[in-house]
């Protein structure tokens, strides 16, 4: 009976949503989106503060964001405040998970890891770490950024903990790293407010678009986001490997 009701409800929802998507003038047809009609046009042309010349890769200097990757320009530039909220969400989730598991030092028993895993992880680990750091530092130039690179670093930690059972209990510094990167993110925002008048405003020249040292504070912000995400994901993984305190 409950299934029939659920199906009826979903059929109604499906009918309404699909009608909206297929023949309504609110949503554009699939694949026909016009960027010119939205604020994204400004984000791409980087002219929110005023008109500027055509953007040429490796030549145009001191744009208002200066990031070659338009998505990074939005995530860490125009809508940086959302990103601050986003890292806060991750921060509270990691904190909540560790509060629920409690302070315990007993870990779940796992079977001995195999030879291939132990040796293979040592070979893969440096590559994973380097690619993670590369993705973080080149977030404003190529696909990727702090979140993706941070997840990669956390996956390297997961691999280590799978191969070496003594690894997870050893790491204690990650909580500090979490707090530190979050603090620095907000301090960057406050410095922007004190020097330039607006929270999270860029205080630096943004340099030439396409170069590694460009886009003002975005690489700095992304580096700390990467560290924060990496340490938080690692924290969540290690909390899930713990045993409950009261057993």
């Amino acid at each position: 009976m409950k299934k029939v009701l659920a199906l009826l409800l979903l059929a109604t929802l499906a009918f309404m949503t699909i009608t909206l998507v297929v023949d309504n003038n609110l949503l554009p047809d699939f694949g026909e989106t016009k960027v010119e009609n939205s604020v994204s046009d400004t984000y791409i042309k980087q002219n929110a503060m005023g008109e500027n010349q055509d953007i040429k890769f490796g030549e145009t200097k001191n744009l208002e964001i200066g990031s070659a990757n338009a998505i990074t320009g939005i995530v860490a530039g125009y809508r940086s405040f959302d990103t601050l909220g986003e890292v806060t969400v991750l921060f509270i989730s990691a904190l909540g998970v560790s509060l629920m598991i409690g302070t315990t030092d007993s870990w779940m028993k796992r079977s001995q890891s195999g030879f291939i895993l132990r040796v293979g992880s040592k070979a893969i680990l440096p590559i994973l770490m380097i690619v993670g750091v590369y993705i973080i530092t080149h977030g404003h130039l190529s696909p990727g950024g702090g979140f993706q690179g941070g997840a990669m670093i956390a996956s390297a930690m997961l691999l280590l903990s799978l191969s070496d059972h003594e690894f997870m209990p050893k790491i204690k510094a990650f909580k500090m790293l979490e707090g530190l990167s979050g603090t620095i993110y907000i301090l960057i925002g406050l410095v922007g407010m004190i020097l330039m008048g607006h929270f999270l405003q860029n205080i630096d020249q943004t340099g030439t678009i396409g170069e590694l040292f460009s886009a003002g504070l975005i690489p700095v912000v992304y580096l700390f986001i990467g560290l924060k995400v990496g340490s938080e994901l690692t924290g969540i993984i290690s909390d899930f490997m713990k045993k409950e305190a009261n057993i």
Binding site: V35, S38, V39, S40, Y43, I44, I74, R79
Partner: peptide, 8 residues
């Protein structure tokens, strides 16, 4: 470019 805002 496609619209970058939904991706962000």
């Amino acid at each position: 470019f496609v619209d970058p805002l939904p991706q962000a």
